[in-house]
């Protein structure tokens, strides 16, 4: 998958988890930019991304995410994109 395609899919997961179809995220988006994205929803978001792409993250990998771009890059590496 291309980085753009992964971002598009990740965007769909965000919309579903946060119950907001109009949500738009980019590579530099952080939790501060999305009102619904708090630490309580973060776990659900990570689980949904894992399920969507059929991958598994480690704790260390998740704790290193600084923004959506970091998450997409790891998804791409894990899906062989």
């Amino acid at each position: 998958m291309t980085p753009e395609a992964i971002l598009l899919e990740v965007n769909k997961v965000f919309a579903e988890v946060f119950g907001n179809p109009s949500i738009t995220v980019g590579p530099t988006t952080t939790a501060k930019d999305v009102p619904e994205w708090d630490s309580l929803n973060h776990t659900a978001l990570i689980a949904a991304v894992e399920k969507h792409f059929q991958i598994k993250f480690s704790l260390r990998e998740v704790m290193r995410f600084q923004n959506v771009g970091d998450m997409c890059a790891l998804v791409r590496a894990k899906t062989g994109g």
């Binding site: 630490s39 973060h42 776990t43 990570i46 689980a47 704790l59 704790m63």
Partner: peptide, 18 residues
């Protein structure tokens, strides 16, 4: 964050884990 993540990785008890 780490505790809820570890519980989420190893169980399906999302709400209980939270």
């Amino acid at each position: 964050r780490p505790l809820s993540m570890v519980i989420s990785f190893h169980t399906s008890w999302r709400r209980v884990g939270t």
